[in-house]
Amino acid sequence: MSYVTGFLTPVKTEDKERYIASAQKSWPLFQKYGALEQIECWGEDIPPGKVTGFDLAVKLEPGEVVVFAWLKWPDRATADACWQQMEADPAFADMDMPFDGKRMMWGGFAPVFEGK
């Protein structure tokens, strides 16, 4: 079954085009390592959290937007291999990362249902 790596990160509103360009540049690299799909979503309706929420999870600051993204892989082994290999790939080292990586979160998920 497929595998998903999910990401949540704050990005400055003024860096939207820069973020999109970075995502577009990263797609061929992820695809080279076996990714089936890359989805990048710019937050539009993010209600303020009281106990928890997307804004609180990334410690959103004024002038920032929450970005929610994921990569779909054929399986976990392919995703794990990508993360190991990308550390040595100079193409990844040259990527523009227009966000605060310290407040980014990510994780791997095994789908339990896929509706299509």
Score class of each variant (00 low, 15 high):
residue 32 K to G: 02
residue 32 K to T: 00
residue 32 K to E: 08
residue 32 K to A: 02
residue 33 Y to C: 05
residue 33 Y to N: 02
residue 34 G to D: 03
residue 35 A to K: 10
residue 35 A to F: 05
residue 36 L to S: 06
residue 37 E to F: 01
residue 37 E to S: 00
residue 37 E to C: 05
residue 37 E to M: 08
residue 37 E to A: 02
residue 38 Q to Y: 14
residue 39 I to F: 15
residue 40 E to F: 12
residue 41 C to T: 12
residue 42 W to S: 13
residue 43 G to H: 06
residue 43 G to I: 07
residue 44 E to Q: 06
residue 45 D to Y: 15
residue 45 D to A: 15
residue 46 I to T: 10
residue 46 I to F: 09
residue 46 I to V: 02
residue 47 P to G: 11
residue 47 P to E: 10
residue 47 P to R: 04
residue 47 P to M: 12
residue 49 G to W: 07
residue 50 K to E: 13
residue 50 K to C: 12
residue 51 V to R: 02
residue 51 V to L: 03
residue 51 V to W: 12
residue 53 G to W: 12
residue 54 F to T: 10
residue 54 F to L: 13
residue 56 L to R: 05
residue 56 L to T: 00
residue 56 L to I: 05
residue 57 A to I: 03
residue 57 A to P: 05
residue 58 V to D: 02
residue 59 K to H: 11
residue 60 L to V: 01
residue 61 E to F: 11
residue 63 G to Q: 04
residue 63 G to Y: 04
residue 63 G to C: 01
residue 63 G to V: 00
residue 64 E to G: 00
residue 65 V to R: 03
residue 65 V to A: 01
residue 65 V to F: 06
residue 66 V to W: 03
residue 66 V to K: 01
residue 67 V to D: 03
residue 67 V to Q: 05
residue 68 F to C: 05
residue 68 F to K: 05
residue 68 F to N: 09
residue 69 A to P: 00
residue 69 A to D: 02
residue 70 W to Y: 15
residue 71 L to W: 11
residue 71 L to R: 00
residue 72 K to E: 00
residue 73 W to L: 08
residue 73 W to Y: 09
residue 74 P to C: 08
residue 74 P to M: 05
residue 74 P to S: 01
residue 75 D to G: 13
residue 75 D to F: 13
residue 75 D to W: 13
residue 76 R to M: 06
residue 77 A to P: 00
residue 79 A to S: 10
residue 80 D to K: 09
residue 80 D to W: 04
residue 80 D to M: 09
residue 81 A to Q: 07
residue 82 C to A: 15
residue 82 C to L: 15
residue 83 W to P: 08
residue 83 W to N: 08
residue 83 W to T: 14
residue 83 W to L: 11
